[in-house]
């Protein structure tokens, strides 16, 4: 290969590695030792499973998990919570920060909407709760049965909303997802970035 081509290849590689050093490696070193935020505990197995459902159903394409600072946007006034800090995400893999708010930010939805029944109905048919909603119906996360067996979690769905006749039972996936949503609560106070700047 000619020197010109080689110089181009090596120069290009060097530049992108330098950029990776700036945007990824340096923050990696800076964030590596961040402690989980006060009060944050690891996910229980069921919550982790629910988070898995959240990931595989692609909730992130409509919901962010990163409230902004009140100095920038009124996220707090919408009840979305204080600005998040790196320690809040200590147990999150893969990250689900999101870049779209077709629906509200969910980082503190467990604190804002603490009722499991509300979530079951909303997941089954969002438009039963919020008529203009464009959120998909997740009725496929529920079973329609004739008889309730021990251990089944029956959820109350108004008959006019029901997709199929029968008794509506939440599948383990739906139960885990709701567990995860209720667990989304990062309201415990921390020192946020803007507070650090003005002590």
């Amino acid at each position: 290969m000619s020197t010109e081509a080689l110089a181009t290849a090596v120069g290009s590689a060097a530049i992108v590695l330098f950029a990776g050093g700036a945007l990824v490696l340096a923050p990696y070193l800076q964030l590596e030792h961040i402690e989980p935020s006060p009060g944050l505990r690891p996910y229980t197995p069921e919550e982790a499973m629910g988070r898995g459902v959240y990931v595989s159903e692609g909730c992130v394409y409509c919901h962010s998990q990163q409230p902004r600072d009140p100095a920038q946007a009124p996220d707090d006034q919408r009840g979305w919570g204080r600005p998040s800090v790196p320690g809040d995400y200590a147990y999150d893999y893969p990250h689900q920060l999101g870049t779209m708010r077709t629906g509200p930010d969910l980082f503190n939805v467990g604190a804002r909407l603490p009722s499991a029944d509300w979530h079951y109905l909303h997941l089954y048919q969002p438009r039963a709760v919020s008529p203009v909603s464009v959120m998909p119906s997740y009725a496929y996360l529920f079973d329609h049965v004739d008889t309730v067996r021990p251990g089944d979690l029956v959820v109350k769905i108004p008959p006019e909303v029901q997709r199929e006749p029968g008794i509506v039972v939440a599948t383990p996936e739906a139960q885990a997802l709701v567990r995860y949503l209720l667990r989304l609560d990062h309201t415990a106070p921390v020192l946020t970035a803007s507070q650090e700047e003005q002590p």
Partner: peptide, 10 residues
């Protein structure tokens, strides 16, 4: 990758 750093690399 982890947490917020995962979002950066993303």
């Amino acid at each position: 990758h982890f947490g917020v750093e995962h979002a950066l690399v993303n």
